[in-house]
Amino acid sequence: MAHTQSIHFSRNGIGAVLRHVVEAVEKATARGRAYRQTMRELNELSDRDLADLRLTRSMIKRVATEAAEAK
């Protein structure tokens, strides 16, 4: 005799999963926005302005990544 396994999701279970997915997408979107904004703003600065912030052009990507991870 064949054994079948059925999976039942309660409304709350599916709702919780969907909320989790939506929250994850919102967080990823916010991180991406922060990364792009930081990259744009730092790339617009002159080398002298970056030096005043104790940054070099080679550090911009890392700084933008750190800003995004803080979100």
Rank of each mutant, 00 (worst) to 15 (best):
M1A: 13
A2R: 10
T4P: 07
T4W: 14
Q5T: 14
Q5P: 00
S6E: 15
I7Y: 14
H8C: 09
H8G: 02
H8E: 09
F9Q: 10
F9N: 05
R11M: 10
N12V: 04
N12G: 12
G13W: 07
G13S: 15
I14V: 01
I14S: 03
G15K: 05
G15N: 12
A16T: 07
V17T: 03
L18T: 01
H20T: 06
V21C: 12
V22W: 06
E23R: 04
E23T: 03
A24P: 01
A24F: 08
E26F: 02
E26V: 08
K27C: 02
A28M: 10
A30H: 06
G32P: 02
G32T: 00
R33E: 04
A34N: 07
Y35K: 11
Y35C: 01
R36G: 07
T38R: 09
T38D: 03
T38P: 03
M39A: 11
M39H: 12
R40F: 14
E41H: 10
E41Y: 08
L42D: 06
N43H: 10
E44S: 08
L45W: 00
L45F: 05
S46W: 02
S46E: 02
D49N: 13
D49G: 05
L50P: 09
A51W: 02
D52G: 01
D52H: 00
D52Q: 05
R54V: 04
R54M: 03
L55H: 05
R57T: 06
S58C: 13
S58E: 14
S58I: 06
M59W: 07
I60R: 09
K61W: 03
K61C: 07
V63Q: 12
V63D: 03
V63I: 14
T65K: 15
T65Q: 14
T65M: 13
E66D: 14
E66V: 09
A67K: 15
A68E: 10
A68Q: 04
E69I: 08
K71M: 15
